[in-house]
Design a protein around this nucleic acid. Structure first.
Length: 207
DNA sequence: ACATTAATTGTGT
DNA sequence: ACACAATTAATGT
């Protein structure tokens, strides 16, 4: 476990802290689709992502969802940190999108490790990054038309893979954007007519 | 190779 | 938003 932590965090944390993480953290493997954090749950640990990809969604009373952002290798969930400190219920849901490894840090360590400069910086840094991503997510829903928003979503999804293809169904996209599948299908069709994308089953190619 | 079926995608009202 | 049609991929025979 120490090796995997070093691999991802060697130039982020001082060596003493790396050892502490290996001592206190619990390494777990998560399957695609598993729920890491449920809404209204009290967190007992915060996740440090080693090799997986996790999506963070906000949800409303009626089961509506809205994708906020993704966290990947070397990231942590800033929102879960803040709700750890305050011992509040989680405001969001975290779902594993790609199978991979996550280290769970017991929440007591959060405060204790504040004595490490690198830990403080890590917390601040990731908080800032997430905040900016949140603002971006807000911008897209507030100011963009649905078709622009969709294109934005697609480009974003492409950025997270190496190739041109997005392996998602229209239904999944609709869930992430909190609309209906029919609307997404129609907009995708329009984008295809504009030669911006190419449609296949379970797959969308970006041109 | 063909038929069956389930899931995904397309379209009209 | 709903209902249904069409298409595709997967699976069994």
């Amino acid at each position: 476990m120490i090796d995997q932590i070093k691999e991802k965090f060697i130039n982020v944390f001082e060596s003493e802290l790396l050892l502490e993480i290996a001592k206190n953290g619990v390494l777990r493997n998560f399957e695609k689709g598993q729920v890491l954090i449920k809404k209204d749950q009290y967190l007992k640990s915060i996740p440090l992502v080693l090799s997986s990809k996790v999506k963070i969604v906000r949800e409303n009373e009626e089961g509506g969802e809205l994708l906020l952002y993704h966290i990947g290798k070397g990231d942590t969930c800033a929102l879960s940190m803040s709700c750890c400190f305050k011992r509040k219920k989680s405001e969001i849901r975290a779902i594993v999108e790609e199978e991979g490894e996550v280290v769970l840090i017991p929440l007591e360590m959060m405060e204790i490790w504040m004595k490490f400069r690198s830990w403080r910086e890590f917390i601040f840094e990731s908080y800032n990054i997430r905040f900016e991503e949140l603002l971006h997510a807000l911008d897209t829903v507030a100011f963009m038309k649905l078709d622009e928003r969709l294109m934005n979503y697609l480009l974003d999804a492409k950025g997270q893979t190496d190739g041109f293809s997005i392996l998602k169904t229209h239904q999944e996209i609709a869930n992430d954007m909190n609309t209906s599948r029919v609307v997404i299908s129609r907009l995708l069709k329009k984008l295809e007519a504009e030669d911006k994308i190419e449609l296949h089953r379970n797959k969308i190619d970006i041109l």
